[in-house]
């Protein structure tokens, strides 16, 4: 089973909210990605079957949106916002510190598969910069030491 029964019924509940099935495609991709960590080709195919569209159409959507991953990227997505307000308050220095701390560059995954470090555009937390998003959670008003501790606590 590529898609679990629990996710399948959650997808059906989403589909019921829209006048056309396809309206629930983004919701379905979020659900599947939460379970699998990324959208594999065979998952895209299974989704395509549910939505009665072609797998390539699913992949077009996956690649258009930053939050959908078309390859595995580590267990935790760590994204430091480097847009202007955050950069004015030290976000880029923070990225460099975390790169050194993890021994990878932004855009890479740690060899143990624990953390994928990346940049992100403005996340709506500009006054509490620098900040980062880890998976679905925001961490704001960071200093380097705090940020390193938070990363160390990730399993």
């Amino acid at each position: 089973m590529v898609i679990s029964d629990a996710v399948r019924s959650a997808i059906d509940a989403e589909i019921a909210k829209y006048p056309e099935k396809r309206g629930a495609l983004l919701a379905a991709l979020h659900l599947v990605q939460r379970e699998h960590g990324w959208i594999a080709p065979e998952t895209a195919k299974a989704i395509a079957e549910i939505f009665e569209i072609r797998a390539i159409e699913v992949m077009e959507v996956v690649t258009f949106y930053n939050m959908f991953l078309d390859r595995p990227q580590g267990r935790h997505q760590v994204r430091v916002c480097t847009n202007l307000p955050c950069s004015l308050r030290g976000a880029r220095e923070l990225v460099h510190t975390l790169e050194q701390h993890l021994g990878v560059e932004a855009g890479e995954t740690t060899p143990d598969g624990r953390i994928h470090l990346g940049h992100e555009e403005c996340l709506g937390a500009c006054a509490w910069a620098p900040m980062m998003r880890i998976d679905d959670t925001y961490y704001e008003n960071l200093d380097a030491e705090q940020a390193k501790k938070i990363l160390d606590s990730l399993k």
Partner: peptide, 9 residues
């Protein structure tokens, strides 16, 4: 998503 905007949040 407009950089610099965080009121709707």
């Amino acid at each position: 998503s407009e950089p610099g905007s965080f009121k709707d949040r």
